[in-house]
Design a binder for these strands. Structure first.
Lengths: 112, 112
DNA sequence: ACCTCCTAGCTCGAAATGCTACATAGGGTC
DNA sequence: GACCCTATGTAGCATTTCGAGCTAGGAGGT
């Protein structure tokens, strides 16, 4: 197995895409769907999806659909690989904990 | 004044620096200290501190110290401004909630 | 005397990342 | 034909990241 973790930088943008995937790891997602869920424009999202695929975290397959009959273009579905799901969860948890330290306990001068 | 929110991109790296500041908003932090707390190398951290200062989120002052007597160079202390503290907390909370959606419920395998 | 390591701050340049605008292509509406 | 909708993706520029280096003084080794 040797789940290699290639030099993939989990930046804020990448993290939100991973978070969208993890909302429902079993579900197939497609580009427009992920654009709405993550809030990124296509020019940000698609390069991220490419990197995610190169890293082996995500795999993709084309929808088997007749565009004429369906009245819309075929979608390309993206899905987390098993490795990708584990890695994504680990990275997001780590990032969140790093942020949590700042928002944790110590402070209080807020209404909450 | 009117706390303007200038085009400062709160990336993952910036967020971890802000989190380091918010760990103890009253404390003065210096470069090496923040490098260790945030995990970023100097070439990442100092440009971020510059941007944070330009945005008015952070202010800095030189330690008044005689380097010869103290046996170490003087430090430059950085501190969140009141505006910066509010903005930092808001941005970090927003980012965290965006990530939280993906990790909802499922996570638990942490020792802490 | 020289070399190396430590604290402390900061700059430089290449590469990675992000984002606006655009391109493609079919269907529906006016 | 002109325009919007779904749907995927590219091009080029600006910003961000990070390894490497630089300055400078003190401590300690050989």
């Amino acid at each position: 197995m040797c789940a290699m973790t290639p030099p993939l930088r989990v930046t804020a943008a990448v993290a939100t895409v991973l978070a969208a995937f993890l909302e429902d790891p079993a579900a197939d997602r497609y580009g427009l769907d992920l654009m709405r869920a993550s809030g990124h424009p296509s020019g940000t999202l698609y390069p991220i999806l490419l990197r995610l695929q190169n890293a082996g975290w995500v795999e993709s397959l084309w929808e088997d659909l007749d565009p004429v009959a369906a009245g819309r273009p075929a979608r390309r579905y993206y899905r987390l690989t098993p490795d990708g799901e584990v890695a994504a969860r680990a990275e997001l948890t780590a990032l969140q904990q790093r942020l949590h330290r700042g928002l944790g306990g110590t402070t209080s001068p807020q209404t909450a």
